[in-house]
């Protein structure tokens, strides 16, 4: 059984002019100790998927359909208090901006100790000891001294390390990392990714890594889900998706990334832009931009279907194959 199962998840934002469907039938699974990359452009719904799983949807957004199961138990219908017990204990979170995920008024030690004691039955001294150990583990030099520093006394990269320590402190089964390196410089980004990878391997923690950067995914993830307009367009092992993308959107996305050593005069261009939530076209939401569009795409919406070996894509061009296989 997978650690986390998301099935047909729907998230709506009610507005005066009717409900906007921000997530429309998202299904994915994360296995024990696995890194699942979730990639997509702004507005594709990748962060929303993360917030829905951890129960932190911004109102008025709400889950209106589907199920989220952690270790086989539903967590999408839990009360606020019940969810609080899971958040931090079983599912940790790392957000993009380390400055806003830390309280500027408390020392990092106090924040770590508080979080540890909420989830684990430890005395103050024991919790402090664990906090120092964690800070050392995430690569903060001289942790016994730095534990009494305030967040503003750390640099961006160091702050993100503290946030990782916070997310790991109750030894959760799953960490939702939402753009953990986007606000950081390239050389620091490489450090943080290496750290996250190492720690999760050691603690056997599964990670849902949400990012717009295919490079980060390629280096870190085991499997990847490509999202487009509130749906999963393609899901599969990262190597396969990067090297042999199936869905026309993924193909375009990969060609649009400029790469060192690859001399092209022009990059592949996907014409147009992702549709707004209130004007998602009928049929496949990618059909107006798709180079391989045919009649069926404009009418009927494709679900994820097998597209060759260990590949799943939501695209009608693989339908025949699915039937034959």
């Amino acid at each position: 059984m997978a650690l986390l199962e998301v099935e047909d998840l729907r998230v709506e934002f009610p507005t005066r002019r009717g409900a906007l469907l921000a997530l429309d039938g998202v299904s994915l699974e994360i296995n024990e100790g696995e890194v699942l990359g979730v990639v997509g452009e702004s507005g594709a719904g990748k962060s929303l998927t993360g917030s829905a799983i951890i129960g932190l949807l911004e109102p008025p957004g709400r889950v209106t359909g589907g199920q989220i199961r952690l270790e086989g138990h539903r967590i999408d219908d839990l009360s606020y208090e019940e969810m609080r017990a899971i958040r931090g204990k079983k599912i940790g979170a790392i957000f993009q901006d380390p400055l806003t995920s830390l309280n500027p008024l408390y020392t990092v030690g106090r924040q770590l100790v508080e979080t540890i004691r909420v989830h684990l039955a430890l005395s103050l001294e024991e919790a402090r000891g664990l906090a120092i150990e964690l800070l050392g583990e995430v690569g903060i030099p001289a942790p016994e001294r730095r534990i009494d520093s305030y967040p503003h006394e750390f640099s961006g990269g160091m702050r993100q390390r503290v946030v990782i320590a916070l997310a790991l402190c109750a030894n959760p089964r799953l960490i939702i990392a939402d753009e953990p390196t986007t606000a950081l410089d390239v050389s620091i980004q490489a450090q943080i990714i290496a750290l996250l990878k190492k720690l999760c391997r050691e603690h056997k923690t599964a990670v849902m890594l949400i990012t717009h950067d295919m490079g980060v995914i390629a280096e870190t993830a085991d499997r990847v889900a490509v999202m487009y307009a509130g749906r999963v367009a393609e899901i599969g092992p990262v190597k396969r998706v990067v090297k042999h993308p199936k869905h026309p959107y993924t193909v375009g996305l990969m060609g649009a990334i400029p790469m060192v050593g690859h001399d092209v005069e022009r990059l592949t261009q996907i014409e147009g832009a992702m549709p707004r939530l209130n004007e998602i076209p009928a049929g496949c939401s990618f059909n107006p931009r798709c180079p391989k569009v045919f009649d069926r795409c404009r009418v009927e919406r494709p679900e994820l279907m097998p597209a060759g070996r260990d590949a799943e894509a939501a695209c009608w061009q693989f339908d025949k194959e699915a039937r034959r296989g």
Binding site: V186, S187, Q189, A190, Q191, I193, A194, D213, M214, G215, V216, A218, E219, V238, K239, V242, K243, I257, M259, V260
Partner: peptide, 15 residues
Amino acid sequence: TIPDLEMTGREREPV
């Protein structure tokens, strides 16, 4: 620090 999209599995040495 350039991410490796070729998937050679090269472990980068973060500086």
